Deep mutational scan, measured.
Amino acid sequence: MFKRLMMVALLVIAPLSAATAADQTNPYKLMDEAAQKTFDRLKNEQPQIRANPDYLRTIVDQELLPYVQVKYAGALVLGQYYKSATPAQREAYFAAFREYLKQAYGQALAMYHGQTYQIAPEQPLGDKTIVPIRVTIIDPNGRPPVRLDFQWRKNSQTGNWQAYDMIAEGVSMITTKQNEWGTLLRTKGIDGLTAQLKSISQQKITLEEKK
């Protein structure tokens, strides 16, 4: 169930391209415009997507990853294993993690069937560096609404905000991946996880038929 919630949630996290980005210092504006741009692209490019579902990787690479804190999220997933990894191991892992996100997020976007969304009203940021933004996803086919909290983090150097995690039903996506990959990290280390991520990233994206 959580895996499905995570995939549905990713439908609204794909941010804007650099040329049309919203105010990078306001995570609420980023979330709002990102959702609108993403849904528009999914709707307008269905012919290309249906002809070649792996085209979704391109959308992810162009529109999402430049505005997601990939390395920060990847380091959180590694936890204690990050500090013990060599620079070469980290570089290989982050490259594999990025390719994994292209496949995983692309597969999530393949679930698009006309969903709509509501974003919580903007709250004062103050001096906060981590801000959760509640998004409610509404399914046109009558499924119950899904309420999610996207975690946005302020870059201490640039002042810009980027998304790095999502919490559904009190469970963090980062925590879920830590639990899912924990045994592999304990037995085969970061190299074993890197190899698995490379394998997963090679899987073809498949479209979910409308139910």
Rank of each mutant, 00 (worst) to 15 (best):
S199V: 10
N52S: 07
D139Q: 14
K210Y: 11
K204C: 09
P140R: 15
D127Y: 14
H113S: 08
D54E: 10
K204D: 10
A9K: 01
K29D: 15
N141K: 07
A34T: 09
R4F: 15
R153F: 00
A104I: 05
N26H: 07
L101H: 11
A92Y: 13
E63C: 05
A195E: 14
L148A: 00
A104Q: 07
G74P: 01
S201H: 09
Q103L: 15
Y72I: 02
G126F: 11
A168E: 09
T38P: 05
N155L: 01
K29L: 12
A110P: 15
L125R: 11
I138S: 09
P27I: 05
A21V: 10
D165R: 04
Y105G: 00
D191R: 10
Q46N: 09
L78Q: 07
L5F: 12
K128N: 06
A22W: 09
T206Y: 10
A22F: 08
I119S: 15
L197F: 03
Q103K: 09
K43I: 05
R90K: 15
T175Y: 12
I59P: 04
L16D: 04
Y81E: 05
R153K: 00
Q103W: 05
D54Q: 12
L184Y: 07
M166F: 02
L185D: 01
K102Y: 15
V146A: 00
T136G: 14
Q178T: 07
A85E: 08
A168R: 11
E91L: 12
N44T: 13
F39D: 02
T38H: 03
I200P: 06
V60M: 11
G182Q: 11
V12W: 12
Y72R: 01
I133Y: 08
R98L: 09
A88H: 14
K3P: 01
S84E: 12
A104Y: 02
K83P: 04
E122W: 10
Y112T: 05
P121V: 12
V131C: 06
A108L: 06
G192L: 09
K154S: 10
T58N: 10
G106C: 12
F2Y: 11
W152R: 03
T20D: 10
N141P: 06
V171I: 00
V8N: 01
K71W: 02
Y28Q: 08
F39M: 01
A21S: 12
D61Y: 10
Q89D: 15
D54H: 08
E169S: 00
D149F: 00
P66F: 06
A168F: 14
N44C: 10
A9E: 00
A75L: 01
P144S: 06
L101G: 14
L148G: 01
A18F: 14
Y67Q: 04
S172C: 00
E99Q: 11
N52R: 12
P15Y: 05
L193F: 07
V8E: 00
L109Q: 04
V135Q: 02
G142T: 09
P144L: 09
T183N: 06
G74H: 01
Q69Y: 01
S172H: 02
N141Y: 08
A9D: 02
R147N: 05
P47S: 11
K210W: 13
G189V: 03
N155I: 03
L197N: 15
R98Q: 14
P53H: 15
L101M: 10
V70Q: 11
V171Q: 01
E91C: 06
D149Q: 03
T187P: 11
D149Y: 04
E209P: 13
M111G: 03
S201L: 10
S199C: 11
E209A: 14
Q46F: 06
H113N: 04
A168G: 00
V8Y: 15
T20A: 14
K154G: 07
Y55N: 13
S199W: 14
G182R: 14
T20P: 08
A22C: 14
K128E: 09
T187D: 02
D32L: 07
T176F: 01
A14K: 08
Q203C: 09
I119K: 05
T136P: 14
K43F: 09
I167P: 15
Y67T: 07
K29M: 15
I130E: 05
K102C: 13
T187K: 14
Q48W: 10
